[in-house]
């Protein structure tokens, strides 16, 4: 009797609604997406046929998709390096015994809670090409931030870093708060200066926070969509196209839903592979230290 009703045990029953929702909202669309990647479905209507691996082969010959892969990797690299570097500096700053540190923490974290699309619209004003307006007016420059193909990608990276540096800061801050004060005191007694204490005490013990930050910012960079879509829509030309904007356009602008899901599948696998490598490398570094 006990075995017969084990599937209806209270623990399963309580989990059942959540599992059902997860299956309907996450699992079913994911599996369906994988299947659509092997079809030529337009996204509307019932007509579709199985095309085997043709969509995946087409990605390799798609100049726009391959170009967007390069843009995505450059954006991700810039975001990961600058966002985490800035986040670490901010964390060290607000970890110090400043009277206004609570206020500064709130101010630096505030952009994180704003919608990415709103941030993009806000930065379109900041990036006004008029020499007397926005960032140009402030710095006395004449840069076409979003209209010059050689600058636009870095302008997007700038707005993403502005928004998420506070997020990295919070994670680094949690790591800093967890470092026992005794270790710093011992290092000071041994004659270590500020830089030496950072190098030999703080930095090694921040390894778990660094792992999380690098992984989250890498994933965020690789699937970046909202800010690009709202600020430049991939332009000028194809200068800021990312894999996410390309797959969106393939599905909803060009009506190639099957091909779009093939790109999405490749992107998902790529993000998973990069994340696994990162975790493996960074965790082994944590253990080594």
């Amino acid at each position: 009797m006990i075995k017969r009703f084990s599937a209806l045990s209270p623990s399963w029953l309580f989990a059942a609604p959540a599992l059902l929702v997860y299956a309907v909202v996450v699992l079913y669309p994911s599996v369906a997406g994988v299947l659509y990647a092997f079809t030529d479905w337009s996204g509307i209507g019932e007509g579709m046929s199985f095309v085997g691996a043709a969509n995946f082969r087409a990605i390799l010959n798609d100049e726009q998709a391959m170009g967007s892969l390069g843009n995505t990797l450059l954006l991700t690299l810039a975001i990961v390096v600058v966002q985490n570097g800035l986040g670490l500096l901010l964390a060290l700053g607000v970890h110090a015994k400043l009277r206004s540190r609570a206020l500064l923490r709130v101010i630096f974290f505030a952009p994180v809670v704003v919608s990415p699309v709103m941030v993009a619209f806000l930065w379109k004003y900041v990036y006004n090409p008029d020499p007397s307006a926005g960032l140009n007016g402030l710095l006395g420059l004449e840069v076409d931030w979003l209209g010059d193909p050689s600058v636009a990608l870095w302008s997007i990276a700038g707005m993403v870093v502005w928004q998420y540096a506070g997020y990295s800061m919070v994670i680094f801050l949690a790591g800093l708060e967890g470092i026992p004060a005794e270790l710093h005191e011992a290092a000071m007694i041994d004659g270590a200066g500020t830089l030496q204490r950072f190098r030999y005490v703080t930095w090694p013990l921040l390894a778990p926070a660094l792992t999380i930050n690098l992984m989250l910012s890498t994933i965020g960079g690789l699937k970046l969509f909202d800010q690009v879509f709202a600020a430049t829509n991939g332009g000028p030309g194809y200068a800021t196209e990312t894999l996410s904007t390309v797959l969106y356009k393939q599905a909803f602008v060009f009506g190639k839903f099957g091909y779009s899901t093939a790109i999405a599948l490749v992107l998902a696998l790529f993000v998973a592979a990069v994340s696994l490598v990162q975790i493996y490398y960074l965790r082994s570094r944590e253990v080594a230290q």
Partner: peptide, 21 residues
């Protein structure tokens, strides 16, 4: 005949104006 020509037209005009094509 398809929905791809128009977005390509948008993109190439931006590239022409930027001197990139």
């Amino acid at each position: 005949p398809n929905a791809e020509v128009q977005p390509v037209h948008f993109a190439v005009v931006q590239e022409l104006l930027a001197g990139k094509a």
